[in-house]
Each structure stands twice: as C-alpha cells, then as structure tokens.
Simulated assay, not measured.
Amino acid sequence: MKIKLSIAALCMTASSAFAGHAAQEAAKSIVPLKDGGALYVFNDGKMAKEDRYGRAQSLKMNQVLETSDGKSITVTSNEVALLNSLLMEGHSGN
C-alpha cells in the first residue's frame, strides 16, 4: 500500500512539473514562496500564483506574500486565468 501511495505521489509531482512548462517559459521570473507555491512575474510585470499542488490560485491586490528566503512581495495584479491557461496547456487531450 505504501508503495502505491509513493508512486501516485511521484506521478502527481511529475505531471505538475510538466504542466508548468509553458508557464515557466512565459514568466520573466518565478519566485519560490514560503508556503511551497510560486509567484510568477510576467514580462509586463503582472503576477500570478501557483499553489504547492500546481494549481493557479487567486490573489488579492496588495496582499503580501513571503518568499522562501524570508523576503516580502506585495501583489500588484491577479492573472489567475492566464496562469491557469498556461498550466493547462498541453493537457487538453488534443
């Protein structure tokens, strides 16, 4: 049973890494966050957040996020639809 759960966890992690490939290419920078997620900063300065499970997560304007190295970043935009589209790219079955 433990082996099956371990394999399932590894598969979910791997699929999350592949899902984010388009998002990684579109972002100017990706900042790891303390909660295990990542903040994507796109070329136009707009921001979006990926949670620790690889899903796009909605942000609130002026929300303060803590980076994995202890710094703080203030949210200036919420591009959840853009990030979700990029994360889902290549997973439509076409």
Rank of each mutant, 00 (worst) to 15 (best):
I7A: 15
A9S: 13
A9G: 03
A9C: 07
A9W: 07
A9V: 07
L10C: 11
L10I: 10
M12K: 12
T13Y: 01
A14I: 14
A14C: 13
S15Y: 11
S15D: 06
S15P: 01
S16T: 14
A17R: 12
A17F: 13
F18A: 09
F18R: 12
A19Y: 03
A19D: 05
G20Q: 10
G20F: 02
A22I: 01
A22Y: 10
Q24D: 14
E25F: 09
A26Y: 06
K28E: 15
S29E: 15
I30G: 05
I30H: 04
V31G: 00
P32Q: 09
P32G: 05
P32K: 11
G36V: 07
G36A: 13
G36N: 08
G37T: 04
A38P: 00
L39E: 02
V41E: 05
V41I: 15
V41R: 00
V41M: 02
F42C: 04
N43A: 15
N43E: 14
D44W: 09
G45H: 06
A48M: 08
A48I: 01
A48E: 02
A48V: 03
E50W: 00
D51M: 02
D51S: 11
R52V: 06
Y53K: 15
Y53I: 08
Y53N: 12
Y53F: 15
G54D: 06
G54S: 09
R55V: 05
R55Y: 13
A56C: 10
A56N: 04
Q57P: 01
Q57H: 10
L59V: 06
K60A: 07
M61Y: 08
M61I: 15
M61G: 05
N62H: 12
N62P: 01
Q63V: 08
V64C: 00
V64W: 06
L65H: 07
E66I: 13
E66Q: 10
E66C: 04
E66Y: 03
T67S: 01
S68P: 03
S68A: 15
D69W: 08
D69C: 04
D69N: 14
D69A: 13
G70F: 07
G70I: 02
G70N: 08
K71V: 03
S72Y: 00
S72C: 04
S72R: 02
S72G: 04
S72T: 09
I73D: 00
I73H: 01
I73R: 00
T74N: 06
V75L: 03
V75E: 03
T76A: 05
